[in-house]
Amino acid sequence: MKQAAEIQYDSRLEGDLVVTRLDAAINWFRKNSLWPMPMGLACCAIELMATGASRFDISRFGAEVMRFSPRQSDVMIVAGTVTYKMALVVKRIYDQMADPKWVIAMGACASTGGMYRSYAVLQGVDRVIPVDVYVAGCPPRPEALLDGLIKLQAKVAREPVASVWKQPPQEPVRPAAALALDAPTQAVPKP
């Protein structure tokens, strides 16, 4: 990405007027008001709540507006174990989120299935939805989640915006596991 423009402000040159690239300005708006969709599934959700609460205060990073409606949120924080029973629900909620959208996989379970290598647990939420930032830990400390959020902000700041608008709309890229699911050839084996 060559146009990795960030907003800059030089008080000697610019007074009340700021001149910058459109990409930089839009990304600046976006990255500082990432509204999370808290996909609180298991234990990690407790740390997610702790991140939002008094001590760690996620609002310092502009992400305190937890929206339980996917339509109003920008980043889905998958906090907890995604089971097979829950997997397609998560995917459906992700699909309902309006673009641009990002995903943070919080904790070992959401990233890889974690300590639950079993018949019931999806081995990583990236098998059904694309993930931008993986946060390690079981559970990750709130600081780690905040660091993940900062990493995501850095990623958002580098994304091309204006050049994408000119392109014709594309089918969203879907991860392989989800595609395989729709294939009608999958036969249910006999018990």
Binding site: K85, A87, L88, S118, Y119, Q123
Partner: peptide
């Protein structure tokens, strides 16, 4: 389809 799927855990 549309409800759930399962795979073998590695």
């Amino acid at each position: 389809p549309e409800v759930a799927f399962s795979e073998r855990a590695p």
